[in-house]
Measured scan of single mutants.
Amino acid sequence: KHCVKCNKAITSGGITYQDQPWHADCFVCVTCSKKLAGQRFTAVEDQYYCVDCYKN
């Protein structure tokens, strides 16, 4: 599998969101770069925000 963000191979520790593979380090808030894996977040038009950034 290849990460949908960076297009590099996922060798271990990847996550899946909406049936797409991601590196955990690539699945981050677009505003603050906080890792979103296992966290609550909001998706708006294929942009992902942590709860704090989305509220602001």
Results as ranks from 00 to 15, higher is better:
Lys1Asp: 03
Lys1Arg: 01
His2Pro: 03
His2Asp: 15
His2Lys: 13
His2Cys: 03
Cys3Arg: 01
Val4Gln: 02
Lys5Met: 15
Cys6Asn: 04
Asn7Ala: 15
Asn7Leu: 14
Asn7Gln: 14
Asn7Ile: 13
Asn7Pro: 03
Asn7His: 05
Lys8His: 14
Lys8Ala: 13
Lys8Gln: 14
Ala9Cys: 15
Ala9Glu: 12
Ala9Phe: 02
Ile10Trp: 07
Ile10Asp: 01
Ile10Gly: 01
Thr11Arg: 08
Thr11Val: 04
Thr11His: 04
Ser12Ile: 14
Gly13Lys: 08
Gly13Asp: 04
Gly13Ile: 07
Gly13Glu: 11
Gly14His: 03
Gly14Arg: 10
Gly14Phe: 02
Ile15Trp: 07
Ile15Ser: 12
Ile15Tyr: 11
Ile15Pro: 06
Thr16Asn: 15
Thr16Trp: 04
Thr16Arg: 13
Tyr17Ala: 09
Gln18Glu: 14
Gln18Trp: 07
Gln18Val: 09
Asp19Ile: 01
Asp19Glu: 04
Asp19Trp: 03
Asp19Met: 07
Gln20Lys: 11
Gln20Asn: 07
Gln20Glu: 10
Pro21Gly: 07
Pro21Gln: 14
Trp22Thr: 05
Trp22Ser: 03
His23Val: 01
Ala24Pro: 12
Cys26Pro: 01
Phe27Thr: 04
Phe27Pro: 02
Val28Pro: 04
Val28Tyr: 09
Val28Met: 11
Val28Trp: 04
Cys29Arg: 00
Cys29Ala: 01
Thr31Pro: 04
Cys32Ala: 00
Cys32Pro: 00
Cys32Met: 01
Ser33Arg: 08
Lys34Ser: 13
Lys34Phe: 05
Lys35Asn: 07
Lys35Cys: 05
Leu36Cys: 02
Leu36Asp: 01
Leu36Asn: 06
Ala37Tyr: 08
Ala37Val: 08
Ala37Met: 06
Gly38Met: 06
Gly38Glu: 09
Gly38Ser: 09
Gln39Glu: 12
Gln39His: 09
Gln39Cys: 08
Gln39Asp: 12
Arg40Val: 08
Arg40Phe: 05
Phe41Lys: 15
Phe41Ser: 13
Phe41Thr: 14
Thr42Ile: 05
Thr42His: 02
Ala43Trp: 08
Ala43Glu: 05
Ala43Val: 08
Ala43Gln: 15
Val44Ile: 08
Glu45Asn: 13
Glu45Cys: 10
Asp46Ala: 15
Asp46Arg: 09
Gln47Phe: 13
Gln47Ala: 10
Gln47Cys: 12
Gln47Met: 14
Tyr48Glu: 06
Tyr48Lys: 05
Tyr49Gly: 06
Tyr49His: 15
Tyr49Met: 13
Tyr49Glu: 08
Cys50Gly: 01
Cys50Met: 00
Val51Asp: 07
Val51Leu: 10
Val51Ala: 10
Asp52Thr: 07
Cys53Met: 00
Tyr54Thr: 07
Asn56Ser: 05
Asn56Cys: 14
Asn56Arg: 15
Asn56Asp: 06
